[in-house]
Design a binder for these strands. Structure first.
Length: 614
RNA sequence: GCCUCGGUAGCUCAGCCUGGUAGAGCGAAUGCCUUGUAAGCAUUAGGUCGCGGGAUCGAAGCCCGCCCGAGGCUCCA
């Protein structure tokens, strides 16, 4: 709604002729008012009573300052390019008139007439005031709306394939029980903040960015380094599995037919932006881009399964503002997204098994581990009846009981979905790795391959994120560290992810040169090493290094220089020992094995570093 | 969106109830100290107390309005 308020000495208008069919019937064609706030109003397409309420509040606010309580509502279409229908506009105008009458002297010029008018506007600074309030259009997918009506049946799937109704199951695993309650009852009362939020700030990994939208984080150098290493590892893993990496746009036209219907099958909220009259939305996964690309491929059954991969930086989901928590739940996040186009259900099932193994390997290597994750599998009853053996294979590989949700009919685009849920220190569950068997989008996006008999067919598509969102992996690692700390274990990140792996501390500035030599030696072995050259006491430097969770601390003084050894303090073992430099390098390289390496993401001298957090 | 809490120095926070010269610790700068495994000492700089209005001789504090942020609830990667 667009409104222009004019504090006037007088206005005179005359209704000349009906402009539209819906014009109001009127008695007084001429009108003159004095000492009045003329309020020109254009009602726009998406306006409703709630918006009208907001406008009324604005109007009242300015009236209070002007101290004039006579007001003329004057329909004035030319304020907007995006008008509501006449019926809608008139009903909202009448609504506003009624509300405003409560306490004000309100007149309304007739709607739907061509009018002649003269006006004399006062000259004071507050005499003219414009108001523009409009609904930010939010698309809510049908899937999201209908999900609420969805009827689910819950079970626990035993590793021998037995499906035990949830209410009959005796839980041996507390976390699985937590996940089950979490999913089924869908309610948890907790009033603490999750421990990873303080940690992500203290370790200078990530923080909120008030100048952005909520759920869009800033990543400090440590966070960028950690995230980059995880991204590299997952990407390498997926490429080794045989996927082809591509890159696709992050925004799409809402009017595209495939997207519009897909959108209505995916339960998520979107960011939308308009540009040159088009409505665009930001992707919530890499599906669209990859499918739109795949439909232009010429494919034979011989080339299937075809695996496409993209690391989406970013995927956007406009979660309700109150749902966003630290690194657990974001509006912009990075997600590896790997689709496999399969010839038929048989091939899809074979491929799904491979991808389950891939996902298990991936989270194990990342340091989250299958042990610290609870599995949920969801499928339609029909799929289960026909594929019991396949589901047995899944649970066999997983090797522990899983929560099962069964739907009577197919509600989403997939017939089966599994995910690994990390349960945190406050018993909150959130999904990491996932895979889905999609039987709709091949046709929806018109992706085709030529089968053995020469006919064109649509592939079955698998949607796998082997690690889940990268930010969420970091969240899981921090929550694990916090839980270690609670149990009296020194918290730390996996060695390959530690921003500094080795810190060298000279006893005094006299040894800095020698330390530089040692540092360069270690660095040449692809180990992240830095040097605390600040003018602080030894104790202070040790303390600071411990606060940063640095896995190896080396103190260098006269003794070490003379002996040619290193005095190493190892965080996890809380001990000190003397080793030769080659031994230390060997030990570290063995532990990192072949996980990715990136150099230090800060100056190697601490004295040259900006101080980021307390 | 709803509920709750919050916004004071670069950071963490005290002061607010009961109005009267704006505080501490950490960090920073400078100097002293030259260190043997989790905080050495001193000095200095640093604030539009989120914004606007009201009542008051006087507001960080009381009243009203607004803005911003966080956590929780529903959900997902």
């Amino acid at each position: 709604m667009k409104v222009l308020q004019l504090h006037s000495n007088f206005i005179e208008y005359e209704a000349v002729e009906k402009e539209i069919e819906y014009a109001e019937e009127i008695t007084n064609k001429k009108m003159r008012l004095e000492e009045v706030i003329v309020t020109l109003v254009a009602v726009e397409k998406n306006d409703n009573e709630k918006i009208a309420d907001n406008v009324i509040n604005e109007i009242k606010r300015s009236i209070d300052t002007i101290k004039c309580n006579r007001i003329l509502l004057y329909p004035y279409a030319h304020l907007s390019q995006d008008l509501a229908s006449p019926q809608q506009a008139l009903s909202i105008l009448k609504y506003m008139e009624n509300i405003l009458k409560n306490g004000l002297e309100v007149y309304r010029a007739p709607f739907g007439w061509t009018k002649a008018f003269s006006i004399s506007v006062k000259g004071h600074p507050l005499a003219e005031h414009s108001i523009n309030i409009s609904k930010t259009k939010e698309y809510v997918s049908k899937a999201l709306e209908e999900e609420e009506k969805l009827r689910s049946y819950w079970f626990i799937l035993e590793t021998d394939g037995r499906l035990v109704p949830l209410e009959e199951y005796k839980f041996k695993n507390k976390r699985l029980e937590i996940l089950a309650k979490y999913e089924v009852v869908k309610k948890r009362e907790v009033d603490q903040e999750p421990p990873h939020i303080k940690l992500m700030k203290k370790l200078a990994i990530a923080d909120y960015e008030p100048a952005s939208d909520v759920g869009n984080m800033r990543l400090y150098p440590n966070g960028r380094l950690i995230k980059s290493l995880i991204e590299q590892y997952v990407t390498r893993k997926v490429l080794e599995y045989g996927a082809i990496e591509v890159e696709t746009p992050i925004m799409y036209n809402t009017k595209h037919p495939s997207l519009e219907s897909y959108f209505n099958r995916f339960p998520a909220r979107q960011y939308t932006i308009s540009s040159e009259g088009r409505e665009l939305f930001l992707r919530f996964a890499a599906c669209f881009g990859q499918f739109l690309m795949a439909k232009d491929f010429t494919l034979s059954y011989k080339q299937l399964p075809l695996k496409l991969y993209e690391l989406t930086r970013y995927s956007f989901r406009k979660e309700k503002s109150g749902e966003l928590v630290g690194l657990r739940r974001l509006r912009a996040f990075t997600m590896p997204d790997c689709h496999a186009l399969c010839r038929d259900m048989e091939q899809a099932k074979e491929e799904a098994i491979k991808r389950l193994r891939l996902s298990i390997d991936t989270i194990n290597a990342l340091g989250v581990s299958l042990d610290s994750v609870e599995v949920a599998i969801r499928f339609t009853r029909g799929f289960y009846e026909e594929n019991k053996e396949f589901i047995n294979r899944l649970i066999n590989i997983i090797g522990k009981p899983a929560l099962v949700e069964v739907w009577d009919k197919q509600f989403f685009y997939f017939v089966l979905k599994w995910e690994f849920n990390f349960v945190d220190n406050l018993d909150k569950a959130s999904a990491l790795s996932t895979d889905q068997i999609d039987v709709e989008n091949g046709a929806r996006y018109n992706i085709t391959f030529v089968d053995e008999d020469g006919s064109k067919k649509n592939p079955i598509i698998l949607h796998n994120s082997p690690s889940g969102a990268v930010e969420r992996v970091i969240y899981a690692l921090l929550e694990k560290a916090a839980s270690d700390e609670k149990r009296g274990i020194a918290p730390m990140l996996p060695l390959w992810l530690s921003p500094t792996q080795v810190r060298i501390i000279p006893i005094s500035e006299n040894y800095i040169d020698k330390c530089m030599n040692i540092m360069n030696n270690i660095k040449s072995n692809n180990i992240r090493v830095d040097l605390d050259d600040r003018d602080e006491t030894l104790n202070k430097k040790i303390r600071d290094a411990e606060k940063e969770w640095i896995p190896y601390i080396i103190v260098i003084g006269e003794q070490e220089i003379n002996k040619g050894t290193l005095n190493v303090r190892k965080r996890r073992e809380k001990n000190r020992r003397e080793v030769k430099i080659e031994e230390l390098i060997r030990e570290i390289k063995d532990e990192i094995h072949n996980m990715p390496y990136m150099p230090l993401n800060m100056p190697e001298l601490l004295s040259k570093r900006p101080q980021i957090m307390v």
